[in-house]
Design a protein around this nucleic acid. Sequence first.
DNA 1: TGTGCTATATAGTACTGCTATATAGTAGAA
DNA 2: TTCTACTATATAGCAGTACTATATAGCACA
Lengths: 112, 112
Amino acid sequence: MLSKQLVAASLQPIVLTILSRGEAYGYEIMQRALDLSNGQLVWTAGTLYPLMHRLEAKGLISSAWHPSESGPRRKYYRITSKGQTVLEADKKEWINVHAILMNLWGPELAIA
Amino acid sequence: MLSKQLVAASLQPIVLTILSRGEAYGYEIMQRALDLSNGQLVWTAGTLYPLMHRLEAKGLISSAWHPSESGPRRKYYRITSKGQTVLEADKKEWINVHAILMNLWGPELAIA
DNA sequence: TGTGCTATATAGTACTGCTATATAGTAGAA
DNA sequence: TTCTACTATATAGCAGTACTATATAGCACA
């Protein structure tokens, strides 16, 4: 289980990256993140849905309800052009901080 | 300026890493982080001191007051053995999340 | 009928970065 | 002397957010 703060720092970039590959609904995003991380990114619904609402309020994603053939209706999200821009900035920031840490921790960790 | 969440995720590992190289006082740690990051890790006193108190409360660091020859007295911090253990765990977690992101973002970013 | 999975939502809590403010020592300028 | 600036630590209050707990609702299967 990852620390709360690392989860916090990686949540927005991961959601935006998933949506940059095509629309998806909340529950689906949660499960994709779980798969992508081999079970490490364990988000709960109480983490994901408020995040999606915040991202939408910031204009980084948009949403639309669609019925499901088997089960409750789903709210599908798409990334906006603003969201794409923010994602690119997030990537740069992450790489940036990673470089600082690798510099601190030495080259032997850079391979891992 | 880095995002609040990236700052949050990197603060503890960076402080513990600096202290793992020898004792230091708060103001000094702030400035070292600024140097190490080429001016990117801009912490304020209101960020650093509460953090140091939390780290001490958690038993990751210990402190001792020492007078200064030129200026107000300083509180010197040392990393504890528990702090060393937590630092190693933090490193592994970071590398771990970084690997997930690099996997998502593709190999072309791994070089940057 | 009941259990379990899918799917979304939110009130409340706890944690934490950051602003603003306070205190105090030293040094140099006006 | 008085003022400004830098060093050094501290904390009250604010704002943002992960997470728990709880609620609602549809479908499948026993």
